[in-house]
């Protein structure tokens, strides 16, 4: 990674958000300097000017000043509010998922990053992406917490067991950038990382073509659904259908047994496979067995991708939002609700 920045020891700006984060950073440096100058100058001037000239002197007493106290409470408050607002705006931008982004599935496990493109290409500890294209990562982890971190893009998000988290960015400069795991994950934490390659569109297409794609996530999911896991025996249409209808499900609002509704998003589909009794759809019996332990996170993402593909225009359905946190139902709530559904 050659450094083209004019500031020494400064990381490269390679995404749309990087400039905003850096602007905030420089604003804060400015505030810090402006705040430090009166204090530091005050300390030095007073320390020299009022150094003791007589042993055990008794200088005149000054009790304080309400005016000064008000001023130096109010000004820092106002300044800190500007910092808050600036931070909030950037944060809002960082975690509002763009529509029609190119989706890539990422699974973290001790101690590697596995990525799979929508067209089927798989990578480990590398990520090839086209420049000037919004990329949305749907991330899961096989084991502990991880954190997908690309400093040149100035963004990161934890990957949390038991749910999906999301990260998006739009790279602005072709190049090779560090990819780290930023959340401590055990023995080889510092080895869990690699490179992000940002490529011109044409180079990226060549790269895609040059890598045998195998099956796409949707195809893998379809294969699992119809053959390996026999989901279709209940969920396929027809008179024998015992499981909920999946066509057109994604993004819709589902009514649950016992009242309450839930939006059918990635996390909902994932949870319904892992813990089917947690949220039973109204009108169905809680008879689906749990597939926990039988499917890997990668197979799960493929299944989710397949179920999504059953809904036309799924990509533009609910913009999966939240700070790296999807519209997640908390897993604990699922667990608490489980016995009810199961009985």
């Amino acid at each position: 990674m050659q450094n083209t920045s004019w500031v020494p020891f400064f990381p490269e700006q390679a995404s749309t958000v990087a400039g905003m984060v850096d602007a905030l950073y420089f604003y804060l440096i400015l505030v810090s300097v402006a705040f430090s100058i009166p204090v530091v100058v005050g300390i030095f001037v007073f320390a020299i000017k009022y150094r003791a000239k007589e042993k055990f002197a008794t200088p005149e007493e000054i009790h304080g000043s309400m005016v000064l106290e008000s001023v130096w409470s109010f000004i820092p408050f106002v300044v800190s509010m500007t910092i808050f607002v600036g931070g909030a705006l950037v944060y809002f931008y960082q975690y509002t998922m763009p529509e029609n982004a190119m989706e890539i599935y990422v699974v973290g496990k001790q101690w590697m990053w596995k990525a799979q493109h929508g067209t089927g290409q798989r990578e480990i500890n590398e990520l090839h992406i086209p420049v000037n294209t919004p990329i949305k990562l749907t991330m899961a982890t096989e084991d502990v917490l991880h954190d997908f971190d690309i400093p040149a893009f100035r963004t990161k998000a934890d990957v949390v067991p038991g749910r999906y988290t999301y990260l998006w960015f739009n790279a602005t400069k072709p190049g090779k950038y560090h990819l780290y795991c930023a959340e401590y994950c055990g023995l080889n934490h510092s080895g869990m990382g690699g490179w992000v390659y940002v490529m011109e569109r044409r180079d990226f297409d060549n790269w895609l073509a040059g890598n045998a794609s195998g099956q796409t996530p949707v195809e893998i999911g379809k294969d699992l659904f119809e053959a390996k896991l026999s989901c279709a025996s209940c969920h396929a249409g027809g008179p024998q259908q015992r499981g909920a209808k999946l066509e057109g499900l994604y993004g819709s609002t589902v009514k649950l047994v016992g009242g309450g509704t839930v939006t059918a998003d990635d996390d909902y589909i994932r949870n319904s496979i892992i813990n089917p009794a947690g949220q039973v759809v109204e009108g169905y019996q809680p008879i689906m067995p749990s597939f926990k332990g039988q499917v890997t996170e990668e197979q799960l993402t493929a299944l989710v991708a397949y179920v999504k593909s059953l809904t036309p225009n799924a990509a533009s359905a609910p913009a999966a939002p939240a700070a790296s946190g999807g519209p997640a139902q908390m897993p604990a709530a699922n667990a608490a609700a489980a016995p009810k559904g199961g009985k």
Partner: peptide
Amino acid sequence: TRSEGVFGR
């Protein structure tokens, strides 16, 4: 507020 996403979107 997790399911609210970014300001309810």
